[in-house]
């Protein structure tokens, strides 16, 4: 269900503006579609619980490396090795929350 006052329920503590969150959402979906060669409509349909690593056959370790490098380039963030774990890559929502936190801590 939608949160009170139309705010999304999954807001994370850094509280980015809705416009920023929407921009990140579409950037991240576009990036995943580019890297994995997915139909943009398939990526656009991702929800927070959509499975990534271990769920999409295209996403092997080399593709994950490419995805992270592309995230660094396009979002202007630096991803340390220690940041990368199975949880962050498991679902689309986790990856988006990770990117959001990285952007907030720049």
């Amino acid at each position: 269900m939608a949160g009170i006052l139309g705010k999304p329920m999954n807001s994370i503590p850094t509280i980015p503006s809705e416009a920023e969150a929407a921009a990140l959402d579409s950037e991240l979906k576009g990036l995943i579609a580019d890297v994995l060669g997915l139909d943009p409509a398939q990526a656009a349909a991702f929800g927070p619980d959509s499975g990534l690593f271990g769920h999409l056959p295209e996403l092997d370790s080399m593709a994950v490396a490419g995805l992270l490098t592309e995230m660094e380039d396009r979002l202007g963030i630096v991803i340390e090795d220690d940041d990368v774990d199975g949880e962050m890559l498991e679902t689309y929502g986790a990856l988006r929350a990770f990117a959001q936190a990285k952007l907030a801590s720049r």
Partner: peptide
């Protein structure tokens, strides 16, 4: 190198 090393550490972790 960074991309290749990263792919290797991810595969190892998996």
């Amino acid at each position: 190198l960074r991309g290749l090393i990263r792919a290797r550490t991810i595969a190892a972790r998996e």
